[in-house]
Simulated scan of single mutants.
Amino acid sequence: MGRIEESIEIDAPIGAVYREWTAYAPLPACMRGGAGRGATATEVLPLDRIAWSGGPELPGHSGVVTFHRVTDRTTRLMLQLDTEPHGLWDHVVEGLGFTDRRVIDELAAFKAHVEDHRQHLAA
Score class of each variant (00 low, 15 high):
Asp11Lys: 07
Asp90Phe: 09
Gly36His: 13
Gly34Cys: 11
Gln80Tyr: 10
Ala29Val: 00
Val17Arg: 04
Gly2Cys: 05
Leu107Ser: 15
Ala109Arg: 14
His120Leu: 15
Ile8Val: 14
Thr66Leu: 07
Lys111Ile: 11
Asp11Tyr: 01
Phe110Lys: 08
Gly55Trp: 01
Glu94Ser: 05
Arg101His: 08
Gly55Asn: 07
Leu77Lys: 11
Leu81Ser: 02
Arg37His: 10
His113Glu: 05
Arg3Ser: 11
Gly38Met: 03
Leu27Ile: 03
Phe98Trp: 15
Leu47Lys: 10
Asp105Met: 08
Pro46Val: 03
Tyr24Glu: 00
Glu20Gly: 06
Gly33Arg: 07
Trp21Ala: 03
Tyr24Gly: 00
Tyr24Lys: 00
Lys111Asn: 09
Thr22Glu: 07
Asp90Met: 05
Leu88Asn: 03
Gly87Asp: 07
Ala29Cys: 10
Ser7Trp: 05
Gly2Ala: 07
Thr83Ser: 11
Leu96Val: 07
Gly15Ser: 11
Ile104His: 05
His91Gly: 03
Ile14Met: 13
Arg118Ile: 02
Ser62Asp: 12
Pro56Phe: 06
Val93Gly: 00
Asp72Thr: 08
Val64His: 02
Gly60Ile: 04
Thr40His: 04
His61Gly: 05
Thr71Ala: 02
Val65Gln: 08
Thr74His: 15
Pro56Gly: 08
Asp100Lys: 13
